[in-house]
Computed example of a mutant assay.
Amino acid sequence: MPYTVLVTGLLLATGLTRLHPFAGLSGLLDSPALWLPITCVVAAVVLRFDAGRREATIRDALGTWPVVAVPTAGFLLLGVLMAATGMSTALAQAASALGHGYVALSPWIGGLGGFVTGSNTGANSMFATAQGETARALGVSVLHLVAMQNTAAAALTMAAPSRVLMALALCPADARPDRRQVMLVVLTANAVMLASFSVLALVTL
């Protein structure tokens, strides 16, 4: 139900803002930052949490928040520092020496960011600027290469150890699969996905 509310709300808001700009509020109305809290409120109302469950949920959320927010903020800060100090440009210049072979490598860089950070925001903060600068240096589409970075990073967040452990924690204890087997399956699936992204990048760019 929460995912239905979130996805439906985002799709409807995006469609409406494309039809009407709403006085420049389109960036707010179709933003996940708006629809995530709306989803939480709707879920709480529809599921009718009692007072005890509401308090327990809020405690759990507040306890989880620093674990997620602090690393994400750190990756954002790292991305800003890389851009501001010229590190992204330097990395792009070095990467452009690979020529168009870099285009096939770009999804793997994005995927590495997603795997390490477990966050699409964190991965893009670190590598999206460098990917865009490299695209300019190579004379290929910046939009396509950064989109490839974003897609690959999002896909590989599912293989991040923190995500795998969270998923396993939701399984019943008597039916919980072995963590190493799950990681092997997920990494294999993601490697196939990244290989297809590499082919797609070469074809489209």
Rank of each mutant, 00 (worst) to 15 (best):
A189G: 15
R163A: 11
T134C: 08
A175P: 01
P177M: 10
V186K: 04
F115G: 03
S125Y: 00
S119Y: 01
M183G: 00
L138S: 04
T188M: 09
A153K: 05
L168R: 03
Q149I: 06
S119W: 03
T157L: 10
G139F: 13
R136C: 01
T121R: 02
T117I: 02
A155Q: 07
L187R: 04
G118E: 07
G122V: 02
R180S: 14
M126Q: 07
V164S: 05
D174N: 12
A167F: 06
Q181S: 13
S125E: 04
L187H: 11
A175Y: 09
F127H: 06
D178M: 01
L187T: 13
M166D: 02
S162N: 13
A160E: 13
M148Q: 06
A137T: 08
L170M: 13
A135Y: 05
R176M: 12
T117M: 06
H144T: 11
T129P: 01
G114E: 10
V185D: 02
S119G: 05
L184V: 11
A128Q: 05
M183E: 13
G132Q: 08
T121I: 15
S162Q: 15
F127W: 14
N190E: 15
V182M: 10
D174K: 08
F115D: 02
T129C: 02
N150R: 00
A135M: 05
G114W: 05
G118T: 04
W108D: 06
T157S: 12
A169M: 06
V116A: 11
S119P: 03
A160Q: 13
L143D: 14
A155G: 06
L184E: 02
F115Q: 05
A128Y: 00
L184D: 01
M158W: 05
L143W: 08
L165G: 05
F115L: 15
G114T: 07
P161R: 07
Q181E: 12
V146T: 13
P177C: 08
T151Q: 04
A130G: 08
L184C: 06
V116S: 04
A137H: 14
T117E: 05
A167S: 15
G118F: 02
M148F: 10
L170Y: 01
A160R: 09
V140L: 04
P172Q: 09
L187D: 09
I109E: 01
A123G: 08
N150P: 00
L112H: 03
M183P: 00
A130I: 04
L156G: 00
G132T: 11
V146W: 03
D174F: 08
L184H: 09
A167H: 01
G114D: 06
T129E: 01
D178T: 03
G111R: 03
G132Y: 01
A154R: 01
A128L: 06
A173H: 12
N124A: 11
M158D: 14
R136T: 14
Q149W: 09
W108L: 14
L145Y: 04
R176G: 09
C171R: 11
